[in-house]
Write a protein that binds this DNA or RNA. Sequence first.
RNA 1: GGUCGGGUGGCCGAGCGGUUAGGCAGAGGUCUGCAAAACCUUGUACGGCGGUUCGAAUCCGCUCCCGACCUCCA
Length: 495
Amino acid sequence: MKQELVLYNSLNRKKETFKPIEEGYIGMYVCGPTVYSDVHLGNVRTFVSFDIIYRYLKYLGYTVRYVRNITDVGHLLDDGTDRISKGARAEKLEPMEVVQKYTLGFHDMMRIFNSEPPSIEPRASGHILEQIEMVQQILDNGLAYEKNGSVYFDVEKFAKEQDVYGKLSGRVIEDLFSETRELKNQGEKKHPADFAIWMKAAPDHLMRWNSPWSEGFPGWHLECSVMSTKYLGTTFDIHGGGNDLKFPHHENEVAQNFGACKCQPANFWLHTNMLLMNGRKMSKSDGNTISPEELFTGESPHVSQGYSPMVVRFFMLQTHYRSTMDLSDEALKASEKGYKRLMEARKTLQGFQAVQSASAGTVDEEISKLLDQALEHMSDDFNTPMALARMFEVVPKINGIRDGHIKAEELSAETLDRTKKVFDDFIFDIFGLQEEMASGKDGTTDGLMQLVIELRNHARSQKDWGTADKIRDTLKELEIQLKDAKGGDTTWVKA
RNA sequence: GGUCGGGUGGCCGAGCGGUUAGGCAGAGGUCUGCAAAACCUUGUACGGCGGUUCGAAUCCGCUCCCGACCUCCA
């Protein structure tokens, strides 16, 4: 019944047929943001990608438990200060105020991009007890050691016991171990590749909890191991995250799970690729960056105008989640046109009435085939660019029927219904796009526009081109475009 | 330096042994009072050099660029 789904699994770098652990159910964990500053567009790309994956899995009929955490503790900066408390000192806020502020900001942005909230959004700070328990388990299993109140994962021992470490990120163990460069805070570690799972807090460290080893805080990677286990079980179906988290974060996560339960946490690992701008990595340090707000308003040297969230989302759909995505003004402009064209076609399609005497002709067959292909592409590792391409091939057919080039009788009632349904399923449910009326297209506006259009059409029928064109030109200045279809129907759209 | 992933037409971006990807831009046409919109037609591109093959953008080798990761990162 369910279509076969093929996923590219980072664990072995191959596409594999997806089989859930429990038929009909999927457990998916995605590493969420660290809430210490405003959301970065790169974060948006990752979470929009997983939003589409989540939506498609549900579309296939699975019951999905989607867990995406909020990291609000334990994430270290280069200088060893905690990210959250660093932000707090700078802004003279309680750490949890910083967390709250940026968590809300993150949620707002996800909503603006029409991303569905996850089923569970656990916070690291809310799972300190569980994290302490996991540290203990790893210690009990002999894969960690305590030193001066901090606990470190024994990577060397783990690597010797099981051929797991390095597999996910493609690291060569020998290389990792022969790493000679000097790293900070290495004094307590037995081996440079070891990493902290519990850190003793320095006297001025704000966020701290009691533990059997010291008053301190959990290591960065631990929270994900703990929360995925708590809400999805020791082994679950899909684990996702940004490409840049593969190492060390995901690698260490796998190590911790093995350390605690001796099992692989996830069967499938999905990694999204990075966002570039003008061909280069988006980076704050060299000014090659743009915030979501700047993108919306157009207040940035990198864009010539503002782009709406849905245009940006559409733009993201045109690139596969595993490819780097190159943001540029020209590419966004192209997306804006494409997005509008698709949405217009969708509206046109929904207005079609089945022709009574209709019987399946060639158009019927062609459209059906394109819809099937679009779905197949989604089941092939969520190939949204391909699926979109097939949708766009249906667009001229829709417009052709509207304009009379293509005979409506050749489209059977069944196929018309299915096309309407699949189009909406794709656009709204899978791609997560939504209609965007730039500014108040409500009942009043609609009524006014209807009146204006009637007045203009009256003028046209009187060959009063002056009046007709004045209406058209003035509306254009107000960024309202009139579209005169064949047969006299005029529609309008806010540019 | 190590590991991995890329270099595709004006731009973005799929494809990964033989077929038109698709979007945007451009050109010609239809329609139209004019225009816009829409529709039709149009582009033979795959970094370079070799090789394998009946056939390569797709496989192999070399080479030149670019990006990511290598304990901050979505």
